[in-house]
Design a protein around this nucleic acid. Structure first.
Lengths: 351, 351
DNA sequence: CAGATCTACTGTATCGTTACAGATTTATGA
DNA sequence: TCATAAATCTGTAACGATACAGTAGATCTG
């Protein structure tokens, strides 16, 4: 957009928004010709195309989405399928921002399609398939054998997952390297002299559970540390549940001295539990946490944080669905982002 | 939905999704009749309506949105207009959740329409108006004389604002009572013996700036406390800027002993600044903060937090736009939510 | 130079829905 | 009894776009 369009664009005689008919009338061409000219079809003369494009631009023509959608089935919609029970630290905000950043340069709109986790996660997918509500879908909370992936693949609707699957289906995804995260977390803790480590893990049915566990266990082996069991609690439990369980653990004989937290909000509850047990972070135990934003380290600088950039994830996911829609092979639409160990809270210049 | 529909619904002979034509064929009626029967028109026989409804349900008929939109202009879309630079603590997540909760029971879809704050906030509004992209709009970061409100009102597109205006236009809104928040915050601080108070305020161009200031100043008068100036910084500054400025303030002779923070993420930076100046929260100063989620008090229990329930705000906003679309008078679509002083971090049962 | 080929453009039908103007049948009224 | 009014139902056109099957005229080919 250049800045010369201060005055509103010309509108068709009747005052409503311009259509192909408007352009056809103004140029003296047929509607079909205008349509084809605008999509640069090979059987339209170069000069005609130029003329049509000029007029279209002048009057601010924008194709009617309903018309296109009705005729072609193309919705120009990407659907972000979310569970309503998203975690406290709000992974959704930066995700939505990342996605819309990419979609801004395209004709796609972002529609948020929620479902209640207590109900069927397939329901929104079926809805989208049955009503043809979107050209592409973004799903998260991926499971190793994810029925949504199976269904979308079977029905041929382009999609991308936030997280990987293990079902022998090649499909676009973006994921955080949770294996690496847990491995590096163990390394950090052992370097600080910690030997008895605990992991606050994802719920077992999600794919990244096994990734994170694998990294954790590989770390234990490589760096010679021991695991303290905490399997009855995971990041989907409430903060109060996590805190209480962890307080109990910290008061027991089995108390760990190193903590790996698979979620930022979980880390808050773990800290609260640890402190409720009269222990001190950084003294009695160290912690490494995965965080989606960086304020945990503002309030507990002792925590080593590894940043998961959700906004970048949103961008990658958006690019991948669009790539899938455009027919790019799935293999080229897979990406993995690496954890970034965060340094201390940014120090201002004056200090 | 009852649970008897395990098997997929019958589909029209050709396997594609059912349309009015399908029902017309199956019932032996005309397409028009079916259309009118489904919308309970008065000129259709009771038994016919029943028959049509039955068949429609059986085959899982859902009106084609593109068809309806093309013919009637009704999009069944609510557009949430957001700035891409949303704050760190992610007000967007619970907002989206609240909105979708309400929309789930309606035919409306939620489309997220972003804009870059560095550019024109009117751009997305113009886009929606020019392309007829939505039946209703939700906007935030409202200003006293908001050009978006003026434009939407002039063009007659239903909308609701998160925040009030002061332009003599009656329109639907939902707002948090920031006047009350700041007033009660001052009360809390004075009750703790604090007398020299500082306010981390919103940027001056937003409407709730004056609300919050008014409450703050009324509190100062009623409870006999003094203001410490901090006007060069507001909640739109970066955390680092806030922290550094506040550290400087806390090191000066003019250091306050009571802090009112108009934002949760701002509070984190203030705490960091205070602690960088070698002061202790709860000892050298007390703080009251408005928070959109409750983990600040998990990590700094000394902070008095007043909870702003963004999810409820989302619900109210969604209800209000729909009310506006349905022609309810704007006066009845305005609501104000009150701050809730939060008690201590929830204590588990066992303790 | 007749016929084939190519270039540039256009009319018609269609996607699914609804507004509108009938049409048909039955009941009503004087 | 015969026009009128209800009560039901229906066909056509249109919303805006595009696929497809042309058409008209210019150019080539042998």
């Amino acid at each position: 957009m250049d800045s010369k369009t201060k005055n509103r664009p010309l509108t068709p005689p009747d005052g409503s928004r311009p259509t192909l008919k408007t352009i056809a009338f103004m140029t003296g061409l047929g509607i079909t010709t205008v349509s084809r000219a605008l999509k640069d079809a090979p059987d339209i003369g170069a000069e005609t195309k130029e003329r049509v494009r000029l007029v279209a631009k002048q009057i601010g023509y924008q194709p009617n989405r309903a018309g296109v959608r009705l005729r072609t089935g193309k919705t120009n919609v990407i659907s972000l399928v979310l569970t309503l029970e998203e975690e406290i630290m709000g992974i959704t905000s930066p995700m939505v921002v990342g996605i819309t950043e990419v979609l801004a340069g395209t004709p796609y709109h972002l529609v948020v399609t929620p479902y209640s986790a207590t109900k069927d996660a397939l329901a929104p997918i079926r809805y989208i398939l049955d009503t043809g509500a979107a050209d592409g879908v973004i799903i998260s909370r991926t499971e190793p054998h994810d029925p949504r992936v199976a269904l979308l693949t079977e029905r041929g609707l382009p999609f991308v997952t936030h997280g990987r699957t293990e079902m022998g289906v090649v499909h676009p995804y973006h994921d955080f390297d949770n294996e690496r995260f847990a491995y590096e977390a163990v390394r950090e803790l052992v370097e600080r002299g910690r030997k008895r480590l605990v992991l606050l893990e994802p719920p077992p049915h999600l794919t990244f559970y096994s990734h994170m566990r694998a990294g954790f266990e590989r770390g234990l082996r490589d760096f010679h540390a021991d695991a303290v069991s905490f399997h009855h609690i995971n990041i989907d439990h409430t903060l109060v549940e996590i805190r209480d369980a962890f307080e109990t653990l910290m008061r027991s004989d089995d108390a760990p001295d190193g903590i790996v937290s698979g979620s930022g909000s979980g880390a808050i509850a773990l800290i609260a539990g640890l402190e409720a047990a009269q222990k001190t972070l950084g003294k009695d135990a160290d912690m490494v946490s995965k965080v989606p934003s960086d304020f945990l380290r503002w309030l507990r600088p002792e925590v080593v944080t590894m940043y998961e950039d959700i906004r970048v994830a949103g961008r990658e996911l958006a690019k991948a669905v669009i790539g899938h829609i455009d027919g790019q092979p799935s293999e080229t639409l897979q990406s993995l982002s690496q954890p970034e160990v965060q340094s201390a809270v940014p120090v201002s210049i004056k200090r």
